[in-house]
């Protein structure tokens, strides 16, 4: 997969990305590079557009301007057929898991195989059990999604995301709402899968500690711009007050504690008529 020159080392490259929802600019000139074989984290407060960014990379949304290149192809210029070919090589783990609620665990993991291949049943069974084994849920194959805990649902979704042996996985908030144990399990899984399957991973998150512990490189995004980037160590020792506030979780700083409001004393003393 890795070629000789420097461009081949970058799997996803985003240049001058602009994207708006209604009148609100979610991205206003973002540049990012995602190197092959590494885990890259994209962090930022809720509502900054992290999920939106993953959907842009997966071609579910189109940028207003700028380019997103994945594996040498400009995503929003692909025909629908080509886009689907590309998506077969990208696994995406949705925040909610997005398992198909009318299928059991086994069938959920088998779904991409049944849709895209004509493999015999015995082969599908072997592949599905291998993927379930990798996430430690081979024993849960007969359960329905409603019977799974949040952490288990995400692991099943992860097994499904790797069934077609993708080159890249996009993780949307994999740690949010997890108890410490399943958090640990997910951290280990993301790290191990990336190494053992030679994947490229993009982890979108606002969980500072867990993300910093597995990422090779971190981008911090706020208000439509990249406000900090570097290795986890470099980020931790950053001088930028914004980065410091986010990484340390301080209540007040460049991101004010108060939502914009009129003067407090004046507000209290002048009730509306």
């Amino acid at each position: 997969m890795t070629g000789g020159n420097a461009d081949d080392e970058v799997l996803v490259s985003i240049r001058n990305l602009v994207f708006s929802r209604g009148s609100r600019k979610i991205f206003d000139g973002v540049d990012l590079d995602i190197p092959r074989g590494k885990i890259t984290a994209i962090m930022g407060p809720s509502g900054t557009g992290k999920t939106t960014l993953l959907k842009l990379i997966g071609g579910q949304l189109r940028p207003d301007s700028g380019t997103i290149t994945v594996d040498g192809r400009i995503v929003h210029e692909l025909s629908l057929g080509r886009l689907y070919e590309l998506r077969k090589k990208i696994g995406m783990l949705f925040q909610t898991g997005a398992l198909l609620t009318d299928l059991n665990v086994f069938e959920n993991v088998a779904f991409p195989l049944r849709e895209h291949t004509k493999l015999p049943e015995s082969m599908i069974r072997t592949l599905v059990l291998m993927k379930l084994q990798a996430v430690g849920l081979r024993g849960a194959r007969d359960l329905m999604p409603a019977q799974l805990s949040g952490g288990m649902a995400r692991r099943v979704a992860l097994a499904r995301a790797i069934t077609l042996d993708p080159m890249m996985i996009l993780y949307d908030e994999p740690f949010t709402g997890q108890d410490p144990i399943s958090m640990g399990v997910l951290v280990k899984l993301i790290r191990d899968l990336n190494r053992e399957l030679g994947l490229t991973s993009i982890v979108v998150s606002h969980d500072v500690e867990e993300t910093a512990s597995i990422a090779d490189y971190i981008y911090l995004i706020s208000e439509g711009k990249v406000v900090g980037q570097g290795t986890p160590d470099a980020i931790r020792h950053s001088e930028s007050p914004w980065v410091l506030q986010f990484m340390e979780g301080l209540a007040d700083g460049p991101v004010p504690f108060h939502y914009p409001a009129p003067d407090y004393a004046a507000d209290l003393l002048n009730p509306p008529a």
Partner: peptide, 21 residues
């Protein structure tokens, strides 16, 4: 509900067209 729980989006990302499937 399939749309609200991202099942349709998830299918699109698995290169399966939810309208057809």
């Amino acid at each position: 509900l399939m749309k609200a729980t991202e099942q349709l989006s998830g299918m699109e990302m698995m290169a399966v067209d939810p309208v057809k499937r």
